[in-house]
Write a protein that binds this DNA or RNA. Structure first.
Lengths: 157, 157
DNA sequence: ACGACCGTTCAGTGGGTTCTGAACGAACGG
DNA sequence: CCGTTCGTTCAGAACCCACTGAACGGTCGT
């Protein structure tokens, strides 16, 4: 079902995801979906191929689907087939950095706690807040835009 | 030593760091260093103020120092004083994004495993590789540049 | 209606990480 | 030279997260 080389690739993607803080199984699923044939696979097939329980695939693939990394493809019967969403990785990064935006509220709370006359702390808090806002905004729009631009120019070469 | 409001702020930063995959104590240290007076604190003082063991502070603050998030400030005697590095957050994000670059090598390995005639998988692998390379490059230069630009323009207002 | 299969959910387990307390080496002060 | 203080390191405890196996609801085929 999966050659030795493919298995190694799948495991490497798993380690890669793990190094980024995501579950290893998530990476293995994503890795296999990149190279499997056909490109859409049922949950049961994924579990069997990757030698993990259906429960694990079910719970792991949900955030992947919600995050736009994979998507369900319409199929007759009861099976749920999943496949890679082209350009989904940028959405993942976007999602990940949206969380940084929460830091802005924390910084705002900090400013409400620190007295007006404490210039040093207020300056550090303001920078912290600005950076969180900037990162969130940047990841949500500019980063994705530049990636799309880069990809089209590279594709048309 | 620390007001109720300050304590809540410190804990919020801790939760914020935790949501990003970093240890909670790291966030609490960073939060306190943002608002404490004086802005540089010894390891023992941090441990006492934050109600954690010196061991925990010692092990947690090392990666912070190596990552450029905090720095040791020269001080007479045996104490090690630490303080916030201005703009350290961008360095942290940059470091984090550098890891994404490792995905390019994984994708290259995948391309060496998948046969030449399998257009679909190869296309997905190529996009994966390009995205990793793009992100690494972008984070290393463009992101930091834009942040510096944003900060100066905002500061001059 | 019944059996078979698909996906979801739940309690329990195992591996990994963060924390603590104690022991240690090093450096200053009396 | 001795006691104190500072930071580091180690083994062990506590905790968290991902994974498993089993039970369940739902749907198709017969």
């Amino acid at each position: 079902m999966m050659s030795d080389g493919e298995a190694e690739f799948v495991d490497r993607v798993g380690l890669f995801f793990e190094s980024l803080g995501a579950p290893r199984t998530m990476g293995r699923i994503y890795g296999w979906l990149m190279i499997c044939d056909p490109p859409d696979q049922s949950l049961t097939a994924l579990a069997r191929t990757l030698s993990v329980s259906k429960a694990s695939v079910s719970t792991t693939i949900r955030p992947m689907s919600e995050g736009g990394l994979v998507e369900r493809v319409p199929v007759a019967g009861r099976e749920h087939h999943y496949r890679i969403v082209p350009g989904g990785l940028s959405r993942l990064v976007r999602l990940h950095f949206t969380r940084v935006g929460a830091g802005a509220e924390v910084a705002a709370f900090g400013l409400s706690v620190v007295d007006e006359d404490r210039a040093g702390p207020r300056e550090r808090l303001a920078e912290f807040r600005d950076f969180c806002e900037f990162t969130q905004r940047e990841a949500g729009s500019e980063f994705v835009r530049r990636w799309a631009e880069f990809r089209t120019t590279k594709g048309s070469q």
